[in-house]
């Protein structure tokens, strides 16, 4: 509880003016509720747990709303609080499994991609359209989301922190108390698995 309180305080500048006009629970829920829930589900996969953390985020942020200075948007502020709660949870749950990921090649998915000489063992399919056009296709984005949800929890947590939250490697190391090599290997395996999943399931 104290840890959570500290995490919130870390994000809130001192002596800030009260939010004006937007500080009603209804407005917060209607504007940011679904977004925060999607964010939490993407990281945790468990909808019930995601709902609990979103609830906790709204309640603790609302309690501390007088301290919000307005340097960032309310959405960014809420996401930061939620992210810290998720990191706290992931760190407790997954630290041992993060530390075990330290070798680039020690993964069956990666080994299957290459032959003994390190050459691709099979031809890579074209995914069709240009990257920009591909990202506009909702079927592709649905498939991407499905592949992301299939990543093992320890890989997904770090991958989301790096690629969706856009935290630096140093920040991830600090927040999860793991080495930069752990982070790099996790990110490499995540990208290789996502690519493999999209290759197998996406038909252009």
């Amino acid at each position: 509880m104290n840890l959570q309180k500290n995490l919130i305080q870390d994000e809130i500048p001192e002596k800030s003016p009260k939010l004006s006009g937007i500080d009603t629970p209804d407005k917060w829920l209607s504007d940011y509720g679904d977004y925060l829930f999607r964010y939490a589900v993407l990281q945790l996969k468990d909808k019930s747990l995601a709902e609990d953390l979103v609830q906790d985020t709204f309640v603790s942020a609302y309690k501390a709303r007088d301290q919000f200075q307005g340097k960032s948007s309310v959405k960014t502020w809420l996401v930061t609080i939620l992210r810290n709660k998720i990191i706290d949870l992931v760190r407790k749950k997954q630290r041992v499994s993060f530390l075990s990921v330290e070798n680039f090649d020690d993964d069956p998915v990666i080994r299957n991609n290459f032959n003994g000489a390190g050459i691709w063992s099979k031809w890579l399919n074209s995914w069709g359209s240009s990257p920009e056009a591909l990202l506009e296709q909702s079927q592709f984005m649905d498939q991407f989301q499905s592949c992301l949800s299939k990543l093992p929890e320890n890989l997904r947590a770090v991958f989301v922190m790096r690629n969706i939250d856009e935290l630096s490697t140093e920040e991830i190391c600090e927040k999860l108390d793991i080495s930069s090599n752990n982070v790099w290997v996790i990110l490499y395996r995540s990208r290789m698995r996502l690519r493999e999943c999209l290759e197998a399931n996406w038909k252009s």
């Binding site: 977004y35 999607r38 993407l42 995914w127 990202l135 991958f159 996502l194 999209l198």
Partner: peptide, 17 residues
């Protein structure tokens, strides 16, 4: 393909479901 994956990450949260 890796660039597409990174690009998809930036859009995935914006897509309402």
């Amino acid at each position: 393909q890796i660039n597409v994956i990174d690009g998809a990450c930036k859009k995935v949260l914006e897509k309402e479901s």
